[in-house]
Design a binder for these strands. Structure first.
Lengths: 340, 340
DNA sequence: TATTTTTACCAAAGCGCTTTGAACACTTGA
DNA sequence: TCAAGTGTTCAAAGCGCTTTGGTAAAAATA
């Protein structure tokens, strides 16, 4: 059933039916009620594409995932987007997903923009000086970046967590507990968040006049396996750390395995702090000992990014929103004073 | 730039330009070349919605994730879909994602069908007697189920792995090694895959004339925490198992933690077999000891489901495809003979 | 050369909706 | 009582594309 048929059935013009359904004021109350009822009765839903063509609005948002270094799709993504689709759905927006493949990322954006396929996009996993930013600006496509790109973070909208501050504080906490040598197992540092975390970590060490040991750091894949490897490596250094800072809970899983194997007791022989994105399948609080974390819900961030993007689409003249979220430092059982 | 403008620029009719770009034969070779070149030069991309309205094809596929029991979005999903988007993109199809929220799942399907928003959908995480199957049949919406629904698995397309066979063989392997008491930490058994796995496990026990101990089984969330809890619980039973069967690598992470804590050596004091979906962040082979698994790539399954669905859309008259994939049993270091 | 067939193109209709501009009937104020 | 205003409805145009049903010119056939 389409609009014309419904209109004929109601003895009304398509115009009136359309206006009634879309809540325009120039429709009589009785008529509106009648239209609503019959539309529901027939299960009428306007044709998506006709509506989109007529209004010129795609009512859709694109999520384009970069074809990662490792071809590994970020396990955080599903959480990031799961909060968002609800927001979109409430506004009648669809979510288009493109997880990198053959087609170049920039080509996808171009296609989306030229074809009017989406009204806006979310940029994920930005890198330092990410070229996507300029491309999207050029295409005049509304977008919100989850994260930042370093240097000039203006002229576009972003939402980020305070990665710098989080790791700065986490490192300071460890220093206050007497730890002098602290390892860092980080994500790839061409991702801005990882870069920021290292900066925060280094700043805290500098503030105490401590040297930075490049060997006590690593930058790589956030997998269980890499967590295991790097933990082993770092704890076999000549001057071995008494504390470890980790970029994700996935790394923690591997680190714990390594520490167990080495017979080190977490919280006593070695202190651990990890960043926790709130992944539902790996709970920091329920570990034994419970894990001290810098915590921020990636799900909430996903929701908020969706709201910001919808706002930009509704009011394109408004200022580009920026949100820098503070990160909680939750002290639990995995951190303890230096054990000489 | 739209079709009409491009046509005017070329001194051709929109008809000819459209046909040239879409590869229809009734266009002169020279003309076609000229059109292609100018289209590229101007970066012309046809308007998605206009094309969809005119052709009546949405050129889009929907993935509707059930609002889970636990509100936990399945971490497997991103892998499942990441293989698929590439296939879709190659055929000019978009992927619409809807991760459960306020809107009822059935309402989303209805909206998709009525509005012509998508040409087909993928059904994820089917349960026994899942109502979505009948709804989609009624809506005449092409769909492929990843998994099955028990009983009558006909009249619709599906791709599944042989969960029954996998756990049957895995259990037999443990029995052959002398284990008599085997625990099972399973996913929620209203999901068909988990139900099938239990059946395979029970069958193997029956075949050896062994009793099934409901206490040695669990059905629940596949999280690290639950893996830990259930492992502890099961290994504290009066007659405690010497081997454990696990539904996912996520459970393994928790199980290993529990076993370490209890001072049990994997492969010696206790044998472990888990199902491995090939998640990139948790590698069974690199654990110590390496993990014996029933393995099947969920990414590959995602790719294949996409192909099947596209096939159904291309040729709606064809038989509904069914694929039951065998599951590899990969024996590694976590399984050993019973240690009396 | 006259006729048919093929090739290369086009005008116009239509996909299903929204929206502009106009029309009609009914109130209201003078 | 008439003019202006107000509340409701509609016809028709248009969104940008595909596709049907042509036509004119060129090539092939008789």
């Amino acid at each position: 059933m389409n609009l014309k048929e419904l209109a004929k059935h109601l003895n009304l013009s398509p115009t009136t039916v359309s206006r009634a359904l879309n809540g325009y004021p120039e429709v009589g109350a009785a008529t509106r009620k009648r239209v609503d009822e019959e539309a529901r009765r027939f299960g009428y839903t306007p044709n998506t594409h006709a509506r989109r063509l007529a209004t010129g609005r795609a009512h859709a948002i694109g999520y384009v995932l970069p074809a990662d270094k490792s071809l590994m799709i970020d396990p955080l993504f599903s959480d990031f987007v799961s909060g968002a689709t609800d927001v979109y759905a409430a506004h009648g927006f669809d979510v288009l997903l493109h997880a990198g493949g053959q087609e170049e990322e920039s080509a996808v954006y171009q296609r989306y923009a030229q074809g009017g396929t989406v009204d806006g996009v979310v940029v994920l996993g930005p890198r330092l000086g990410d070229p996507r930013i300029n491309l999207l600006k050029k295409l005049k496509m509304p977008f919100v970046v989850h994260g930042r790109v370093g240097e000039l973070d203006s002229g576009f909208a972003w939402l980020d967590i305070d990665n710098y501050g989080a790791f700065h504080r986490a490192t300071k906490l460890l220093l206050d507990l007497g730890h002098q040598r602290i390892g860092l197992i980080n994500g790839y540092e061409d991702f801005n968040y990882a870069y920021e975390r290292r900066r925060g970590y280094e700043k805290a060490l500098h503030e105490r006049g401590l040297k930075i040991d490049p060997l006590a750091m690593s930058s790589g894949l956030m997998t269980e396996e890499n967590g295991y490897r790097q933990t082993k490596r770092i704890l076999q250094l000549a001057v071995k750390p008494s504390a470890l800072l980790l970029g994700s809970m996935l790394l923690v899983a591997g680190a714990m395995r390594a520490l167990n194997e080495m017979g080190l007791i977490i919280g006593r022989d070695i202190s651990l702090i990890a960043h926790d994105d709130g992944l539902p399948f790996l709970n920091a609080a329920s570990l034994v000992p419970s894990l001290t974390t810098t915590s921020s819900s990636i799900r909430l961030a996903g929701t908020r990014v969706a709201e910001l993007l919808l706002g930009m689409i509704t009011d394109p003249e408004a200022e580009h929103p920026h949100e820098l979220w503070p990160v909680d430092l939750i002290v639990r059982g995995s951190t303890g004073p230096l054990n000489r």
